[in-house]
Design a protein around this nucleic acid. Structure first.
Lengths: 353, 353
DNA sequence: GCCTCGATTGACACCGGTGTCGGACGGGAT
DNA sequence: ATCCCGTCCGACACCGGTGTCAATCGAGGC
């Protein structure tokens, strides 16, 4: 074999589609310099329209697409976006990924995933290494890592683009997507109050999660609309897990004056409440109404199907990646927040009597 | 600002950690050519040990890590591996991702995800574009795309490394990981037969999925061990969805001689069976035993908690990425298959009488 | 008709690695 | 001492793009 495949000879391979076109091919065929082709790729304004069109025609003819690696090398950053998450709920993760991909479609960016552990002592350096290793363009953070100020500070320091998804605005608007969890809580509270419940219990997520406070705050707002309040003894701290829902419900249902309805901070815990109710011999919704949060698949698989608050996770993901890409020059309009909505199923009803 | 930051002047930035070391820095400091540093990075054998050690010392001192983009540009491939899937079950996807990441840890590779639609007419070109866009090193395919021969042929044609995860060996050993679904089915069949069930029903996944046939075949094997057979009218075709489980169970339970136990092809459908049983006024497990497959979270959230077959998805994922990386020169031993196991919970019991 | 100036375009170096090939060096055979 | 050969290493081009800066060009002002 000759030392190197001679360059001028492989035009045949190009024509036959056996070789991908490079910027050099396009430049040679269009009769311009590669820098000018580069200008077309990067939408440089200082280009005569006829030059641009001539080059675009050649690009289209050969189906040329610039090599992200070479481009990235010159730009000193890659065309990759990272999803950094510590939420253990599979459906949340998958919906978020789908949403992010929705917003990235056709942009030439790819999504790389990075689960992490918020509690790890090496959280910040780990994430930093992840970003610097592949020189990520930017990252999307979801709760609860998104609430970590140490991580955010590091991102600003190394100049990595980022968007934080959280239940409240934790950063300036260009860096945050808010999920309006408070509104979701309000819908739950209003729903239960309208059904006539006076004694409403709440099982929160971990108090280190902003969403726990938002969902509770919303619930209280919804109850307040009907002149009700959330009694302190009707509140249990959970951990967004099935088991913690079970325990929280056991505690609330063991109260001398047990609540007639329980709002669980998410569907997983609501499923735990259903199990606890069954063990306590209570039927849902006759003896106890239950409301969840998320509207993940589990909500319609348990018995009875859960009344729950739907959080538009996939939509949120799409907004997040669009916001991130708008920092890359892709012009996406900055859209309005998406509000959660209530999905009424069979786990809620008016209290007895 | 001067036209370009002068090169020799920024050693201070290097020392201060404000600039990442490049191969040029290491070469200059170690007093060798960059090609020799490259030889160290790539474990070239023709290097005097003392030279290697000298360079390795400098690399360690400055925490140098080669730039994957530059390396990829020269190698004509990236250090990314893709996960291509069309399985809609979130927990499967997440577990698979976690497993893949387990096997990739410390390798310098990253995981990029690509959901797809097996039914799409542009499936093959879409996947091809995904691979060529970022010049992926390799991909992992999971059911049911992993069973598509058109996709596999394309991968071979473009020379992309790949591993296919499937319930049976669909390719040569170096390209496939088998999940031994038949064994899982056998465990379910054996379990039900041992409990004394004679009339066992089966709700399969789509017949276009290999796993549907494997799980059924295994069930029949397990029953056969006890002299039982699976009657044709006791088999319903489902679609691995909750709704199809509901429908399949409605059909089987409407039979004049209804089965006393149902093995559903996955947990989602088993949840559907539970709902159908409740609507039919049957209690589980007293009137009807139910077995699922997967052991995803839902299995322990429904009532009663499902007896099911656990498939070691995360472990499978780890094996898949290790197999893929072994083709990249990372020496991972080729490990044994992981077998599914039975998790007995409360949805199965001996039949009445 | 000549000069000035902004708009276009190209030449060249560079991003940070790897492939090719040849040169320097040292030991054993002649 | 000379020759041969294998080992080890470096010079240089190249991967496919972008940044910098200078050159070219046509139009408008004198």
């Amino acid at each position: 074999m000759s030392p190197r495949t001679p360059k001028p000879a492989d035009d045949a391979a190009l024509e036959g589609g056996r070789r991908r076109a490079t910027i050099n091919d396009i430049a040679r065929i269009a009769g311009v310099s590669k820098k000018t082709v580069s200008r077309v790729i990067n939408r440089s304004p200082s280009l005569r329209p006829e030059t641009r069109e001539k080059i675009e025609a050649v690009i289209a003819k050969y189906g040329y697409a610039p090599d992200p690696q070479a481009r990235g090398l010159a730009f000193r950053r890659s065309f990759l976006i990272g999803l950094i998450y510590d939420n253990p709920n599979p459906q949340y993760v998958v919906n978020m990924q789908l949403g992010l991909l929705d917003g990235m479609r056709g942009s030439g960016f790819e999504l790389v995933v990075h689960p992490c552990d918020r509690g790890s002592t090496t959280l910040v350096p780990d994430i930093r290494a992840f970003i610097e290793r592949q020189k990520l363009f930017g990252v999307v953070l979801t709760p609860s890592v998104s609430e970590d100020e140490g991580v955010a500070a590091m991102l600003r320091e190394i100049g990595c683009e980022y968007v934080r998804v959280a239940s409240v605005a934790v950063d300036e608007a260009s860096h945050s997507i808010v999920t309006q969890d408070r509104h979701g809580g309000l819908l739950a509270g209003r729903h239960l109050a309208e059904l006539g419940h006076k004694a409403v219990g709440f099982i929160s997520g971990p108090l280190t999660f902003r969403s726990s406070h938002e969902r509770r705050g919303g619930l209280e707002e919804g109850l307040a609309e009907h002149g009700l309040t959330l009694a302190a003894e009707y509140v249990a701290e959970g951990a967004y897990t099935f088991e913690s829902g079970l325990e929280g419900a056991a505690k609330l249902l063991g109260l001398p004056n047990r609540p007639t309805a329980i709002f669980a901070g998410n569907d997983e815990m609501a499923a735990g409440v259903l199990h606890a109710a069954r063990r306590a011999g209570l039927s849902v919704p006759e003896d106890l109404s239950v409301v969840g949060f998320d509207d993940f698949q589990i909500a319609s698989r348990v018995w009875p199907p859960l009344t729950t608050v739907r959080s538009p996770t996939r939509e949120i993901g799409r907004l997040a990646s669009e916001k991130l890409l708008s920092q890359a020059g892709e012009d996406k309009r900055d859209p309005a927040d998406r509000l959660p909505s209530l999905v009424a199923r069979e786990s809620t009803a008016a209290p007895r009597g």
